[in-house]
Design a protein around this nucleic acid. Structure first.
Lengths: 147, 147
DNA sequence: CGACATGGTTCGACGGTACAACCAGATGGT
DNA sequence: ACCATCTGGTTGTACCGTCGAACCATGTCG
């Protein structure tokens, strides 16, 4: 168990990640994480749509790393709420283009506010001199996971 | 670098975390993450039990940050697999003490191996000079979440 | 034009969690 | 001793969230 930087124990990484996952509550369905009455998966979709303006359904699936069947249902829920409109893709007869309704934009805005509030509090809880390191580390970790 | 001491954008943290969560696949039920045919919530419980030897059910709930009803069901699944035994608590007529069966210990061992293998690969994908920083950052983040 | 690939939908299944109602054993005050 | 209350567990119900497979419609390529 030498702790030279290059041969760190996988168990340490495991423990660190496990602790983080539990503390973040990621293993529970995380109902409405931000005070808004909106399931978390819908929030993810809403965020992507708000950011992109228009999105092909298949592209949304790619970004959320979900199956097309899952996304189909998800979009169904969002349209049921009146937040998203499905339109036929102009360049592909099979495709569906998603767009936020004005009501959906409003919801996305509220959500963004609540989320910013939440993360702002989290950020405050991190010692200032650690913040940059945490951001950097998350990037590194995500990159490593993508291999 | 400098400049962000206290005024770092929460949006950066949010993006970083969102990317990490999706890349890690934490928003999907994560069936048998390690090749073992075992649901992830059972794996968590198994890990705790393997580490502690004996555990009161209520204590397991506390560690996993789950409701007692959820844990009751979870333990039921594990006993159905023959991995866990429920025994009445000696000092409290209501309580239940959980212990791994020998079969359960074997399963926990296999699981630990697979998990170590997985995290070892992840660790390999992190540039050596970043590893220490990543571990540290996860700790900081978990601590911040606990407030 | 036929074989195959791709985008979507629907169906059925399962994992995972919470809350509420309920029971039984523990606790503490009067 | 007694009753109110607390606590650990179990069970029922409901919901979120995901997947795979079957299916249809459209595109694409030889």
């Amino acid at each position: 168990m030498s702790e030279d930087g290059g041969a760190a124990d996988p168990a340490l990484l495991q423990d660190a990640l496990r602790g983080f996952v539990r503390a973040f509550g990621l293993h529970q369905p995380e109902s409405t994480p931000c005070g808004q009455a909106i399931p978390v998966s819908e929030a993810h979709a809403l965020g992507e749509l708000a950011q992109e303006g228009e999105l092909r359904q298949v592209e949304l699936a790619r970004r959320l790393r979900l199956q097309k069947s899952t996304v189909s249902r998800l979009v169904g829920q969002l349209t049921a709420r009146g937040w998203v409109e499905r339109a036929p893709a102009p360049d592909d007869g099979r495709g569906v283009v998603l767009r936020l309704t004005s009501s959906g934009q409003k919801a996305a805005h509220n959500l963004a506010d609540a989320r910013r509030e939440k993360f702002s509090r989290l950020l405050d809880a991190i010692p200032p001199h650690e913040r940059e390191g945490v951001l950097h580390a998350l990037g590194v970790l995500t990159e490593a996971l993508d291999e």
